[in-house]
Design a protein around this nucleic acid. Structure first.
Lengths: 168, 168
DNA sequence: GGAAGGTAGTCAGGCCCCGAATCATCTTGC
DNA sequence: GCAAGATGATTCGGGGCCTGACTACCTTCC
């Protein structure tokens, strides 16, 4: 579980730091804290199936791609999963070792291969996805459709501010 | 940067999985994605000062505590930072090695000590906090006060659903 | 005063992820 | 046809954080 500061003590020094915007910090901390709760909860859920978030994302992307009749290369999965290709190599290594995916050589370009779910990997997804979807629905159960739309819109506004946070 | 799935392909299989609630998933993914952007951006910002999120939280808590005239034990910092005491040991080790904090033995209880900012640690905080606060304010600049309040309220509603996501 | 149990901090080992460097292969331009 | 450069995947080294087992110390209560 990652580190997130608590809010209480902050009020004390608004006067010392003119750039301190209390409601911005409070809202930001609320997001970071929820984000930790969320990833922690998913991690707990996935680990009951022997997966991590990263491993799950790989499998579910393969599952979806397969359903759409396609296939994926490591680089494509990395792109879909927003991780580096180096990370993807490691994920695929352990998934292959566990017999959940297999690497299939590309017929023409010998630098590449495509990744396929094994029978076992497909069964795992089939077995866990209904529960997974049910849990995600339960997570959002307290929000109406309108509230969900509002939340997404507000998150998008925050997202627009991320470059200002990140860039030098 | 952690892994977060993309949304597009999901629509294809609503019919196969009756428990799949598209707006729940879409909203959840939006949160996870923003959470990654956010922690990534903060990580980038902190690393320019030689810090990580965890290291920063320790220093800022010490800074705040000191300002309030108090002092903190490792366990108290761990509590404030929502991490385990074991993790705190590691953070304090590297912070001490970098000369940013010092450990001071408890006068009576030899199991304990208190953590203090060094001159260097204090200077680092003084120097970076104005910029840090400004960045956080900029992150939220696109949201009005009302929108921030709404966002926090919606996040709280999501938070209420976390147990349903986590528990077996 | 000494076992039983609680508490503070530490250690060892592990997972996940990354960037940089590397290897193999393909493509392009001459 | 062949060097030069691009591209896909991998390896290596390392950082950050976590958990679970452990040590040292204190407290309690008979």
């Amino acid at each position: 579980m990652k580190l997130v500061p608590r809010y209480e003590r902050l009020q004390l020094q608004v006067h010392r730091f003119p750039t301190l915007d209390p409601s911005a910090i409070e809202t930001c901390i609320a997001m970071l804290r929820l984000s930790n709760e969320l990833t922690g909860a998913y991690e707990a859920h996935f680990s009951r199936h022997g997966l991590s978030q990263g491993r799950f994302v790989v499998l579910v992307q393969l599952f979806l791609a397969e359903d759409a009749g396609g296939t994926l290369s490591p680089a494509e999965i990395a792109e879909l999963a927003s991780c580096s290709r180096a990370t993807m190599t490691g994920l695929l290594d352990t998934l292959e070792k566990d017999g959940l995916v297999s690497r299939v050589d590309h017929p023409e370009d010998r630098r590449m291969y495509s990744v396929h779910l094994t029978e076992r990997g497909r069964d795992l997804m089939q077995g866990m996805l209904p529960d997974h979807y049910r849990r995600t629905a339960a997570l959002m159960a307290h929000l109406s459709q309108d509230e969900r739309d509002t939340l997404r819109a507000l998150l998008a506004k925050v997202s627009a501010g991320v470059p200002a946070l990140r860039d030098p």
